[in-house]
Amino acid sequence: MNLDALIQRLHQIRENNDWRRFHSPKNLAMAASVEMSELLEIFQWLTEDQSRQLSAEQLEHAGQEVGDVVLYLLLLCSELGLDMDQVVRAKLADSERRFAR
């Protein structure tokens, strides 16, 4: 996955629709949270086992919501001047240090 290409495509969609004015860091964080809530809704009331055996329709819906969350987070990183790849790698390295056995 080429994050730079994805961000460029996102920016193009944003510019084509005049959404830049809405894409403050606050609004993008809130939008990502809303999409995460929509992802959670798929799993609401399922047992642990059921959550691991989603129907094809549920899997497709989950994928759409995951995509929404990731795209909003990419836009948020762009607005904050954060490099998503660097941020994720740094967090992973931190987790490896903290939780290594």
Rank of each mutant, 00 (worst) to 15 (best):
E38G: 00
D94C: 02
E41W: 13
L71N: 11
L6Q: 14
V66C: 14
E48D: 14
L46Y: 10
V66R: 11
D68R: 08
Q8R: 15
N16F: 00
V34D: 06
E48Q: 14
E57A: 10
M1N: 08
A32T: 03
L10R: 02
R20G: 05
S51M: 03
H61T: 09
G63L: 08
V87D: 11
R101D: 08
L28Y: 00
D18M: 03
L76K: 07
L54S: 04
E38Y: 01
G63E: 11
V69G: 07
R21P: 02
H61K: 14
L82C: 05
D85T: 11
W19L: 15
H61A: 13
R52M: 10
L76Q: 07
R14T: 12
F43S: 03
I7P: 11
Q44L: 15
G67L: 14
A5W: 14
Q53S: 08
C77N: 12
E48T: 06
R97T: 01
T47L: 08
R89W: 00
F99R: 06
V70H: 05
G81Y: 12
R98N: 02
N27H: 01
V34T: 09
R9D: 13
P25Y: 06
Q8F: 09
L75N: 05
L39M: 11
Q44W: 07
M1E: 10
V66W: 08
L73M: 12
V88I: 13
R20A: 12
E15W: 05
V88S: 10
L82G: 01
D94S: 05
N16A: 12
M1S: 12
P25A: 12
V34E: 08
H11E: 09
R89K: 15
V88T: 13
S51L: 00
K91M: 02
E79N: 01
A93S: 07
L75W: 02
N16E: 09
L6E: 15
H23S: 04
N16R: 13
L59C: 08
V87I: 12
V34I: 13
H11L: 13
Q86L: 03
Q50W: 04
L80Q: 05
A29S: 03
L39I: 02
D4G: 13
A90W: 00
W19V: 07
S55T: 14
R52Y: 12
L39W: 04
D85Q: 15
M84S: 13
F22A: 06
S55G: 03
E65A: 05
V69N: 06
Q58Y: 04
E79I: 00
W19E: 15
Q12W: 04
L40Q: 15
L92W: 02
L28S: 04
V70F: 11
Q44E: 13
L39F: 02
D4T: 14
